[in-house]
Nucleic acid binder design. Structure first.
Lengths: 110, 110
DNA sequence: GTAACGTACAACCAAATGGTTGTACGTGAG
DNA sequence: CTCACGTACAACCATTTGGTTGTACGTTAC
């Protein structure tokens, strides 16, 4: 995923990727250090293929990056995408804050 | 949803709720001002029942709050929940930053 | 060279999702 | 009072999701 402006589809993919505890845990693990898919798989009570699918979801969302190293595929975090998601949520928060500020200003003017 | 500490299930619900463009748009609209479900429904190319379901998803996630007013049900934003989601993502970001800081410090010590 | 390892991917399945229509019910306007 | 409005919810359907197993293939260790 190219990370310029967040399209609706991009946001869909990012939030959907975050909406699963296993995937959030994968993000936390690879944020510390890059890990191979099989190394990741050892931590979860599911098949290798299932973990591989979770990584694929994170990859499609642009939250991780895969880099071949020998016969392993090292999964690494892409914090820039996470930042985009945070900024999007903060934009919604700002809309709400504007409204409250508007009310406050209105009250102050009385 | 009570907003103390965010359980995995809470985070699942919140991010799942955010993973849909219609629901994100509903959040933006009700952030400006409370709106009845039918008022919301007019803006989307789908049935009233479909919009009602989207609102229910947002409600279960704690992102909106419903308040009966006469025969209408006014949907309002609950920014505190949004804030929790942002903080959760920032926690992941911090983990990554720690690692980078660690590397920086290591390089600086050489 | 060969066997084991790490990965990729297809096929399959149950459950959840996102939409529909139809029915029922309380409330407020006229 | 009555009827239209706003809501709630069940039943249904197609698609997606999250898991499984099985097969195939490149790479590395020995």
């Amino acid at each position: 995923m190219v990370v310029r402006e967040l399209s609706d589809a991009d946001a869909d993919r990012i939030f959907h990727a975050l909406a699963d505890a296993t995937r959030r845990d994968i993000i936390a693990r690879v944020a510390r250090e890059g890990l191979s898919v099989s190394a990741l798989a050892q931590h979860y009570p599911m098949s290798f293929a299932a973990v591989q699918k979770h990584v694929a979801v994170l990859h499609r969302a642009g939250l991780v990056h895969k880099e071949r190293r020998g016969r392993e595929q090292v999964v690494q975090a892409r914090p820039a995408t996470l930042r985009r998601a945070i900024e999007l949520l903060e934009a919604y928060e700002r809309i709400w804050r504007q409204r409250v500020d508007g009310i406050d200003r209105l009250l102050a003017e009385e």
